[in-house]
Design a protein around this nucleic acid. Structure first.
Lengths: 131, 131
DNA sequence: TAACTGTTATACTATAAATATAACAAATAA
DNA sequence: TTATTTGTTATATTTATAGTATAACAGTTA
């Protein structure tokens, strides 16, 4: 799995890392139980600091995406990601709300908006391996 | 139009201001050509600093939501908000992408996700005044 | 023993957010 | 004319976050 960073972006590096790993799980490029690089080696590969990687890992751990064993290192959660709960839906709504507010202002139709979402969903539905 | 701020939120105050004004335009609580409070009076009403309001206004101005005349003060863009262009769609996609990545991880179906979006759209479709 | 793991601690730089004053230029109202 | 209000600009300060730089500790593994 490839990780690419945009050091010019306003989006913090650790956030970019988080969402690329989440996207990797969504696309099944990362499987449950699969190991991730150590904080030191990943930091070295990406040319960034150990703590920046650690911050991304800690948040992914707290949100249930990965587990961190003293022994086994960092692994994608073998039991899968926690299912959507009430708190998740509430937070998701508050993230989408301002996007739709602006869309409505710009006369974007509900149909076109939903179509964009569908199109993005499709990117994650590519079947298993691509060999 | 009421503006409410959450000073405990991690979301910057000027961002909260921006999106509540955008939401006001979307809900037609704010009409094209309608005046907005001066930076000083709004800051005083909300108990925040002049520059925080100014920052929100400047960004809204740059994005075409409002106009600022020396004479007339601050008004909602009489010509309406600029239509969605290629840059807008591109930026929107990059904002939705990580949300859908996480949704896929949590086994949220495309149908449920689109349903949430539809539900939010409905909030902006309330007809005109509510007298 | 040596190397590697996650973890913790400290210190530093840089940037963003927010506030606090102050002042300027233009328009308006007394 | 004076006084007030407008948006605007300029400085300075505080606070918090992001990122880096070292260093060390406690386990695990080769």
């Amino acid at each position: 799995m490839y990780l690419t960073l945009d050091l010019e972006s306003e989006e913090p590096i650790y956030t970019q890392l988080k969402y690329q790993i989440i996207a990797g799980i969504a696309k099944k490029e990362l499987s449950p139980g699969e190991g991730l690089p150590s904080v030191r080696s990943l930091a070295a590969d990406l040319g960034i600091n150990l703590h920046t990687v650690n911050k991304a890992y800690q948040q992914l751990k707290q949100e249930g995406f990965i587990l961190i064993h003293r022994q086994k290192g960092v692994v994608v959660n073998p039991d899968g990601v926690p299912q959507a709960n009430e708190a998740y839906w509430s937070e998701l709504e508050s993230k989408i709300h301002p996007l739709i507010a602006e869309a409505v202002c710009r006369n974007v139709s509900e149909k076109d908006f939903l179509q964009l979402c569908s199109q993005i969903f499709t990117k994650f539905n590519i079947k298993d391996d691509e060999s």
